[in-house]
Amino acid sequence: MTKTIKLGEVIESPISGEWGEEGSRVKVLRSTNFTNEGYLDLSDVVTRNIPEKKIQQKKLKPGDIIIEKSGGSPNQPVGRVVYFDVADEDYLFSNFTSVIRPKNGVFPRFLFWFLFGNHLNKQTLNYQNKTTGIINLQLQRYIEETNLLIPPLPEQRRIAALLDRADALRQKDRQLLTYYDELAQSVFLDMFGDPVTNEKEWEVSDLGNMIQDGPKNGLYKPSSAYGSGTPILRIDSFYNGQIVDIGSLKRVAATSSELAQYLIEENDIVINRVNSRSHLGKSALIPRLAEPTLFESNMMRVKFKSALHPVYTIYILNSTYVKNQILGRAKDAVNQSSINQDDIRSFEIPIPPLSLQQQFASIIENIEHQKVAVRQQMAESEALFGRLLQESFGG
């Protein structure tokens, strides 16, 4: 029989983490080892010197759920959880985390998915506070006040297995999308070689020699001008060379003169000129647009000559080779860095034959078609997972 009980009734008292001192006695998991999908990333685990007594008291057991209780950000509240299932090695967990260990009669994966869904639906936002710049989860209050619908153990196992399968499906779709991204990069290197070494001995030119128009800084408008009018491209609207969702751009009131100066067109490239060093210089290829669209002041618009195919150009601009040139020219200020128009003109890039660039663009077009299908599949698997998560816990 399903019953509603408090979370605190089905778990042991939370175990707080340890940090210790520098050393190599035991591996310690931090919130940086958390992924947002509930998995542990063990690629960068620190080791710390912690007394043997505490290791024995607090070492993790398979089936433990580690919860992030300090850290977070305005866009990523604390309360993330990961499931621990490593059986062959000792691990502890840092003082920014705690362990939630289910009591007998509670299936660990069932409890994990409940806590995962709670955070996904931002229930942990109600239990946050901020001290000395750090966001903290009021873990004890969260445990005492959170209700859980808990069915008999066989039903818990069934629900957990169902969610595991739905999660595996969405993870498979994400991995497939990553595969296509990696395939595109492999094709680039196979056809053009590493631009750092230029082993194919392509002609190298300053980017300025290849520019037909620009670079031109974008339109600045105060926040009061936003809300309606003409769509405007902002730096949060593109990633990895592509516009993320052209249909969801913000809109801004603009004069006819501004429209004439700051429009972007298909096959233009925009380059971010002001940002943190890690995102400085990111660029995007403009796709076909349904209506006139502007670009914002923290980026520059560039139109290239026909000797450069737009698809090849966006790949070379997003390469590590050009990224290093960007960082070498960056002007650093408090919390941000910048590049200017002359910096962009000075970038050196290899210029392969146009016919080879066109061949590359054709292959990338086919890969992008496959990615469109995968994204649709991803949307469906994400929606399925979300529905099952809600239905499983009385949402």
Rank of each mutant, 00 (worst) to 15 (best):
T2S: 14
I5V: 15
E9L: 08
V10H: 05
V10I: 15
I11M: 05
S16G: 15
G20D: 01
G20V: 02
G23N: 09
G23Y: 02
S24C: 04
S31F: 13
T32S: 13
T35C: 03
N36E: 11
Y39K: 11
D41C: 04
P51V: 04
E52G: 09
K53G: 00
Q56K: 10
E68Q: 12
S73V: 10
F84R: 11
D85R: 07
Y91N: 08
L92H: 05
N95M: 08
K103F: 05
R109G: 00
F110M: 11
W113S: 10
Q123G: 15
Y127Q: 07
N129W: 12
N129M: 11
T132Q: 02
Q138E: 04
L139T: 14
L148M: 14
L149E: 14
I159V: 13
L162I: 09
L163N: 04
L163H: 06
A168L: 05
R174N: 12
R174W: 06
Y180L: 11
F188W: 04
L189T: 14
L189A: 15
D206Y: 12
G208K: 13
D213L: 08
G214M: 02
P215Q: 02
S223N: 10
S223T: 03
I235N: 09
I243Y: 11
V244H: 05
V244A: 09
D245N: 15
G247Y: 10
S248I: 03
A254M: 05
I264M: 05
E266H: 12
I271C: 04
V274M: 11
N275I: 14
I286N: 01
R288F: 05
T293M: 13
L294V: 12
F304R: 04
F304E: 06
S306V: 13
S306E: 15
V311I: 12
Y312S: 06
N318M: 03
S346R: 05
F347I: 07
I351M: 10
P352L: 05
Q359M: 10
A361N: 07
E365D: 13
Q370H: 14
Q376Y: 02
Q376I: 03
Q377M: 00
M378D: 02
M378A: 03
